[in-house]
Design a protein around this nucleic acid. Sequence first.
DNA 1: TGAATAGTGTCTATCAGACATTATCTC
DNA 2: GAGATAATGTCTGATAGACACTATTCA
Lengths: 312, 312
Amino acid sequence: MGFADASASERPYLPPAVAVSTVAFALRPPPGASTLDADAAADGEASAAPATLWIPLVRRTREPFRGRWALPGGPTRWNETLTDTALRSIRAAAGCTPGYLEQLYAFGGVERSADAARLVTIAYWAMLGEGDLDAAVGAGAAAAAEDRPSDSGAGSADGPWNRVTTAPSTSRRWDDPRDPPPLQPFDAASPDSEGNVAWCSADRLPELAFDHAGIIAYALARLRSKTEYAAVAHRFLGPTFTIGRLRAVHEAVLGAAVDPANFRRQMLARGVLVDTGERETGAAHRPARLYRFSNDAAPEPPDARPHPRRSA
Amino acid sequence: MGFADASASERPYLPPAVAVSTVAFALRPPPGASTLDADAAADGEASAAPATLWIPLVRRTREPFRGRWALPGGPTRWNETLTDTALRSIRAAAGCTPGYLEQLYAFGGVERSADAARLVTIAYWAMLGEGDLDAAVGAGAAAAAEDRPSDSGAGSADGPWNRVTTAPSTSRRWDDPRDPPPLQPFDAASPDSEGNVAWCSADRLPELAFDHAGIIAYALARLRSKTEYAAVAHRFLGPTFTIGRLRAVHEAVLGAAVDPANFRRQMLARGVLVDTGERETGAAHRPARLYRFSNDAAPEPPDARPHPRRSA
DNA sequence: TGAATAGTGTCTATCAGACATTATCTC
DNA sequence: GAGATAATGTCTGATAGACACTATTCA
């Protein structure tokens, strides 16, 4: 077709390719997933309080940056929205669907692609819940290295996007009103015994391809900022949780200790936590109340950034 | 070339076109610019305190939404960044260069284009200073209607972008460290006696093409939010200004009265205003100190959104 | 009983907002 | 002097943070 057949001399005049890169945060890797940092992984399993955030990465199988780790992503297909593409990429890399997804930034520099072919990358960041992680399918081990573009055009041989092939997730459906579910399942490809997905602590990243280290840093800043002023941290947890668990999430995200008493008051003052009558049992201390998040249907406009504290 | 020659049946498989739309706010239209709302325009010139924000719009000269007003913008060229495209679009519509420019959001819905051809639109918002407005060239009257794509490929005949042709701005250079200046001047096209640019109050918009009304509402929310927590309002003013002028800007942006005493204290407490020894003269009241903005070189990362109040 | 966390009470420094008061210009 | 805005002073209610204290479970 037109694009793929264009000669190199014509490429500068072609429209830029559009790709999506995703930063999917989780409190820990899915069970059985391969990790890049052995020490940190052991720590994460041993201690109850997660002290770091985890991100799935995929290994590039072609130039440029062949062999380097990179963010999951790929080009948009003609019939899916950018959000669809982000969701599909995350599902392929993590094996599950995120509980929260938000656009981060559109990078459109002319120098991003090593070739003359222009590339516009829209970055997304997401939060994976604990229940989602446990329901993840084929994360890591069953993932196959498939970096070849499929039939969906835009087949620039040196695109910086990174494909992951995994069976489509069978976990719970995407019921956030923000965006419709994707239109089609991910196309399975040649399975391989060795996966090209690895989970990595956001604190100890390897050398990454392209400017993906900067994108992760930016996503981390947004996650921290949003944790401070909006109620998003609960999306790392299951449907019910104690305030202590929620505080541990804040501490992991912000990287600092949080006063339990003040945190409790602030969270309850927000009025978004609902006390389920139940309690946490089995712990060697006074049992904690289990809360759930109240107004999941609080409709934030197109995307949830302007955070108008006062509605003027 | 490849893209333009693709038949209609091939289009769904081609990469999406990438365009930029811009929302350029100003306290008032440039002198001599044509406005859509006669009453509001008269008000704006008569009263000293601007009560509304103004935005340049361009009239579409082709389907879809032919004749409707729309946001300035157009497709990216192969050798310019998205920021370059936004700057060029604003210069063409407003005749001057904004003092502040920030990416708003990337819209990638599959239904945005009326045709099967996919379109990804990256929206930007900007602030035009008073000095820039006075130095604006050919705003409105000298603008020419040129909606034909030039040689830069991506020539989908029904693209929703909106071109404006005006002589390149001769006002001050783009010296914000955020991004490099554009690589090439805007290509002048056939001049026309009737302009296709009009300035419009953000409060009384006409029916707009596409989802541009939503984009403007979103940009307005961001401007208001950012005015509350960051020091950006001064970019609507000249290099020096009184605190009263700055307060008037806040009132115009937020649409509400602001206490002079508390506003003064808060602004001075931020430590970003520098007292030039000078005073404002000629006013029928006690002369006010003239301030300038101090740390214009405060380097905010890639783009300035995560506003980390505390650097952890 | 000891350890650990849940949950409550309380004090303080800080800050936003309301509003009074003085200062200084033009007409 | 009238009128207008600049600039300062002061009071109050709300809140973030620090921290003491009680409650309740398991080992």
